[in-house]
Nucleic acid binder design. Structure first.
Length: 485
RNA sequence: GGUAUCGUGGCCGAGUGGCUAGGCAGUGGUCUGCAAAACCAUCUACAGCAGUUCGAAUCUGCUCGAUACCUCCA
């Protein structure tokens, strides 16, 4: 199998990837908390991991991809209530209605962006029993304590024998004098401690029985429990957004370390943020844009609508680990580039083979694999694909030629990288309609006749009127063609 | 205050010690009835200062600036 390099946040360097079991990969990615519509920044993370998943599959690995849905336990800021519960109260819904509503939204959006579904999509509320068992284990190890029906993880005690901060490189602060505002109400021994179980207040709707209180699990615990359950106590890849690195992933490592006595994950991958107006998109600050606003064009920042494929292309033009800034002009240029790429693929279907090849298709394929195998470098891949686009257009005009096997190989390359790995789909499916094709053939023929007889008024009329309804005429050396814009 | 990442041409965005990334926009040309598309050519660059080196956008130090995390966020 081809060598693959992955930037491992845990080691802070690029490493050659070696799965625990040859040919198999266990991958866990933190999913959304379904208390609201996901915004485009959330989508970026899932698209990045979709691309990663697709490439791993393409390389021939059997991948078990687990991506959770957080439907309980995610606390709001400075509050004892969780996000789902808060939303349920605001919308006067059952918590599970909130969960259902936004889970459906999540899935619909990801479908628009052509994401493959994960192998398993577990929920926090479906694993309450496992979470309670894990808390018991941690309590028995003496790394957690019970206060007023809630259970907290003792970070300082853990840090005596283990390294809390191994992932985020944070150095925990001993002593409370360094902390900013210590919440007087808090049951915690230290502000760094985090909740494993919270006792439910009277008005808290989501609640389960436990040995300590009627309450609900802490946010960090679900990922530990579910990744362990489905991928084992040690697995290959754990991913998530950069903003989850600390404290969420740090806490996951600590919990798993106490429960299973081994480091849970070999490769930690963190995808970077999508910025809007120079700042991270965020639900809580309102600096965000919804996927639906992109394809309906309802956001004031956008001059027009953009298809999901265009925004997917826009994201793939940046490396997953870089911050990416969204703007109308960036989407506009992405759209042009995307159409150029997709048009070339259509053109490729019309190319006929020649006797000799004037271009090294093998070298192109090698470059594409090299780019992807170097920490999933999609911008470099796309640069190479545009090299292929240039060749395709030259093939059409006769400046380059390919023999039959090279031509087939070029088609395969585009199929693999554009469709299978980058996950782009042409949004011009309507071009394939037989009726439309036949009518357009006639129209082009009539216009061609008009041109031949010098009737350019008619020729231009046809071209202009078609342009108004979104069809572009392209006159080439060997005749005219058309496409839906 | 702590931790981390980053500062690349008109814009977006790769590269990380010597060899043109790429896309969009611009300019010149080919083609065209004209235009568009396409193709060819081409311009604008590595935040600043000092150091290491035969050679640095790439390594080191400092300065300035930006962002993220440290309290919920993909």
């Amino acid at each position: 199998m081809r060598e693959l390099k992955i930037y491992n946040t845990l080691k802070a360097e690029k490493e050659v990837f070696k799965p625990i079991t040859e040919g198999f990969i266990g991958m866990y990615v933190c999913g959304p908390t379904v208390y609201d519509n996901i915004h485009l920044g959330n989508v970026r993370t899932f698209i990045s991991f979709d691309m990663i998943y697709r490439y791993l599959l393409h390389l021939g690995y059997k991948v078990r991809y687990v991506r959770n849905i957080t439907d309980a336990g995610h606390l709001t800021d400075h509050n004892t209530e969780d996000k789902i519960t808060t939303k349920a109260r605001l919308e006067q819904l059952e918590p599970m209605e909130v969960v259902q509503k936004y889970t459906v939204d999540f899935h619909e959006v990801l479908k628009q962006y052509n994401l493959l579904p994960p192998s398993i999509e577990p929920t926090a509320t479906g694993h309450i029993v496992e979470q309670i068992e894990a808390i018991q284990t941690i309590l028995e190890s003496g790394i957690a304590y019970v206060v007023n029906g809630s259970v907290y993880f003792d970070v300082l005690k853990y840090n005596e024998t283990e390294n809390y901060g191994i992932l985020s490189k944070q150095v925990i602060e001993y002593g409370i004098e360094n902390t900013r505002e210590l919440d007087g109400q808090s049951d915690k021994k230290n502000p760094q401690d985090f909740a494993l179980w919270k006792k439910a207040e009277e008005n808290h709707i989501q609640r389960w029985n436990s040995p300590w209180s009627v309450g609900f699990p802490g946010w960090h615990l679900e990922c530990t429990v579910m990744s362990t359950k489905y991928l084992g106590s040690q697995f290959d890849i754990h991913g998530g957004g950069m903003d989850l690195k600390f404290p969420h992933h740090e806490c996951e490592i600590a919990q798993a370390q106490v429960c299973n006595h081994k480091t849970p994950v070999n490769y930690w991958m963190h995808t970077n943020m999508l910025n809007l107006n120079g700042k991270k998109m965020s639900k809580s600050t309102g600096n965000s844009i919804l996927p639906s606003e992109i394809y309906t064009g309802t956001n004031p920042l956008l001059s027009k609508t953009y298809s999901p494929s265009v925004s997917r292309f826009f994201m793939m033009q940046a490396h997953y680990s870089s911050i990416l800034d969204l703007s109308d002009s960036a989407l506009l240029s992405a759209e042009k580039g995307f159409l150029k790429l997709m048009n070339a693929i259509e053109t490729l279907e019309q190319i006929s083979a020649a006797d000799i090849s004037t271009y090294d298709v093998n070298a192109l394929e090698e470059k594409c694999y090299a780019a992807m195998s170097d920490d999933f470098n999609t911008p470099i891949l796309i640069a190479h694909l545009f090299d292929g686009v240039r060749i395709i257009n030259s093939l059409k005009s006769g400046k380059e030629s390919l023999n039959i096997s090279d031509l087939e190989q070029l088609k395969t390359i585009f199929n693999i990288f554009v469709t299978d790995i980058l996950g782009f789909i042409s949004h011009k499916e309507s071009n394939g309609n037989d009726l439309t094709n036949n009518i357009m053939e006639l129209v082009l023929q009539l216009r061609g006749n008009a041109k031949k007889s010098g009737d350019f008024d008619t020729a231009d009329l046809i071209r202009n009127e078609l342009d108004k309804v979104g069809v572009q005429i392209k006159d080439g050396r060997e005749g005219s063609s058309w496409e839906v814009k």
